[in-house]
Design a binder for these strands. Structure first.
Lengths: 192, 192
DNA sequence: AACGTAGTACTACACATGGAGTGGTGTCAA
DNA sequence: TTGACACCACTCCATGTGTAGTACTACGTT
């Protein structure tokens, strides 16, 4: 088993590309070799099985979808009211759109998790952490609304992203934008 | 090309099973033969290409996910208030859960639509019709709330179903149930 | 500076799998 | 008898895996 860490990372990123482009079933060692532009056989040398590749991709995608520290810091400036909340949600969606390959790959992984308990465990852990972090962040931020509102926004925005990514003609960009604003308006109770 | 319509239907239903179990990439003629319990080669004789199979499956799934006429009729009885609305949403989720293979297959198709314009067109058309029908049904029903509320519920409930189907340990059944109730409460403005 | 060594990159091959498509035969009903 | 379909068997082809063997590079030793 080879150990060059940059190569490993490049291969995992290649795996994410393949997931988005070909689906979970299309994730073969050779396809990853091609996507990562390394000679055929390389991925075989770095990963023992497809499962390993899938679970590691599951971990890595999430890292790349989360905001970086600078973004988080910036979010803490300014008044934390409902308009601000909506602004944050728009930014969230923009950020994910910028890495939509990752989001599609994550959906593929979710579906594959239906069939692979180990992958399911990894994703469950990751996503639970993310949800908890969102709720904790909200509680600490001084933003209006409650934890339930965070959850409901999580639900609505996720599907909105799915809709925009998979069937972009269902909602126009403008409609999607308005739905985000409206979701915040209705799901986040105003402070008294 | 063979024409026996029952066989065609059985093959399409087989294709839906395969989609859920193996993913879009696993949808091969032979796999459909196996799922539909017909001799190998049969699907080849009924469909010219995988594309044909995919688009026809896309049409058929939606038929099977929609409520039957009796259910729709039953929904029009009783007072049409917000409690009733929540009840309808719970029923909707139960109905989809009863055919979760279909829902998973539909998700696979959505992802595949990313890569196949023809399939994307079919799904876009179908789903737009469904959304429009929901809004029209709501308007005619006397239920509280507005069209935007219908859309926002559509978003939130869809992702809730995804979450329950792909990573069932994220929300318990009880939590999911409560989220549905709360979504209705917040997204559906009460009548004045 | 020459040499040896370890780890890795690259290439090529042997093997296995699985799916597509089709021709031929059997069967049933009009 | 004929036509349409079901069923079966066979060939061809594409793709992926794992690994053995070779080449390269960096580094430490004397």
């Amino acid at each position: 088993m080879r150990r060059n860490p940059e190569r490993r990372a490049a291969l995992i990123d290649g795996a994410i590309e393949v997931l988005a482009a070909e689906g979970a079933r299309g994730l073969t060692f050779r396809a990853v070799d091609t996507a990562a532009k390394v000679p055929p056989g390389t991925t075989s040398n770095y990963f023992a099985s497809r499962d390993e590749l899938l679970t590691q991709a599951g971990g890595r995608i999430y890292e790349r979808l989360l905001p970086d520290a600078a973004t988080v810091a910036r979010h803490q400036e300014g008044t934390q009211d409902r308009a601000r909340y909506a602004e944050l949600m728009h930014e969230l969606i923009d950020r994910i759109s910028a890495f939509n390959v990752g989001y599609v790959a994550l959906l593929e992984l979710r579906l594959e998790a239906t069939r692979r308990p180990e992958l399911r465990a990894v994703l469950t852990e990751r996503i639970r952490q993310d949800i908890d972090a969102n709720i904790a962040y909200h509680a600490a931020s001084g933003l209006p609304g409650d934890a339930k509102g965070v959850l409901l926004l999580y639900l609505a925005l996720n599907w909105l992203i799915v809709e925009r990514l998979t069937l972009p003609d269902i909602f126009t960009e403008q409609e999607a934008h308005d739905l985000v604003a409206l979701a915040v308006e209705r799901l986040v109770p105003e402070d008294g």
